[in-house]
Design a protein around this nucleic acid. Sequence first.
DNA 1: ATAGTATATGCAATTAAATTGCATATACTA
DNA 2: TAGTATATGCAATTTAATTGCATATACTAT
Lengths: 139, 139
Amino acid sequence: MKIDPIHLLKEHDLKHTKQRVRVLEEIALDTAAISQPNLEKKLGKEIDRVTLYRILNTYEEKGILHRIMDMHGTANYAICSSSCTEDHHHDEHVHFNCTNCFKIYCLEVEAPRIKMPEGFTAKTVSSIAYGICNKCNAI
Amino acid sequence: MKIDPIHLLKEHDLKHTKQRVRVLEEIALDTAAISQPNLEKKLGKEIDRVTLYRILNTYEEKGILHRIMDMHGTANYAICSSSCTEDHHHDEHVHFNCTNCFKIYCLEVEAPRIKMPEGFTAKTVSSIAYGICNKCNAI
DNA sequence: ATAGTATATGCAATTAAATTGCATATACTA
DNA sequence: TAGTATATGCAATTTAATTGCATATACTAT
């Protein structure tokens, strides 16, 4: 994922601080989503725990990151496709959670249309597939 | 959901205790899944917090309950369809999380088949639809 | 029915995660 | 470059989850 942190921040009316840039850089390193605990482990020395929470929250609100909850209820973060806005996250693709390496991938597969029962109206659908990712399958 | 706690416990080689029965009864009260915090609120006086954790865990392991993580990473529990076993949970239906009343329903809709990218092999798919449930729509 | 055994429960203590308030530091505006 | 708004880090607090252990309870075999 090629991103320009500084530009991205400006675009969303966020002040440019070294912590915010750092978080974006770290998340952009991998195409897979990164978990909150993992981020904390990597950045814990550089960025205060509380600050990290706050940065992740504002990013999520602003539509810069989207959050994927894994099967353990842990938050994972990935950079939103450019079309995300504060109002609507375009994260309706399928996510893939590898049960071997535990990484979460954003697949380029649209979330499936699901027929709702009478009376239920769905606004968004989040699908997570669990299995073995391409890297782990290759081993 | 009509269940027979005592029979269910015996079936899974679990000792019959009043706490375990109580938990099953409480969960069976509603067709919707119930959240861990909610269960705790309802049973907190009767059952120790720690015991509740343990009971829910063993039920999940044994395939008596299945756990649905909502968008906040909170665990929600619903009674498994009878065909669940320790090895395999048949919870591959779609779940519906009402954004108004926050209840989670197990829909009688099978999880959609999703075409995986090259190299990825999916074992299970979990889909959660967010929107307004039938009861809230009726108001 | 009962004694013996295995395991479930409740309590206390611990560990881990998340939140809040506030003083200071830093980025942006004029 | 000074003034202002807000982000950061630290301390303290709140909330959630886990562990160890003594006691209580359910099941087994007699």
